[in-house]
Amino acid sequence: MKISQLFKLPFIIIGVLIFISSCDYSPEKVKFKRYRVAGERLFEQHCANCHQKNGEGLRGLYPPLAGSDYLKNEFEKSICIIKNGTNDTLTVNGKVYNLPMPSIDLGNIEVAEIVTFVYNSWGNEKGLIDVKEIESLLKSCE
């Protein structure tokens, strides 16, 4: 082996190690990605009409989800609203919104996927919200 080849060896080893470590196939992460991808599709189908694809809402009509203090502070209520809709007025980032949000026929798993997407987009990083957690939270909805 030539000296120059010997010199390259550590780089090759480090490169291989980085490559291996980037393939993180832990079941949790796979589940999270699966939820988020499905959630994005459902979001575009059911939510983006009003809240827009970028989550910014529409003027004073539909509240933003991106940078929303309501989502941050009212996690349980937000999940109930996603599942059941609401006719209440909501205050988001200091603005009052009064249009009704319809309830759509979503299964709990779909709610979990949407919640995972919304809570991990536009700067939100809440991680995976499992369907089991959603099920127990939904029991306490009014």
Binding site: N49, C50, Q52, L58, R59, L61, Y62, L99, P100, M101, P102
Partner: peptide, 16 residues
Amino acid sequence: FTTCPDICPKMKAQML
């Protein structure tokens, strides 16, 4: 109509 949940918001966003 103001409470229309499906296509109106899309239309209003486009009209805007």
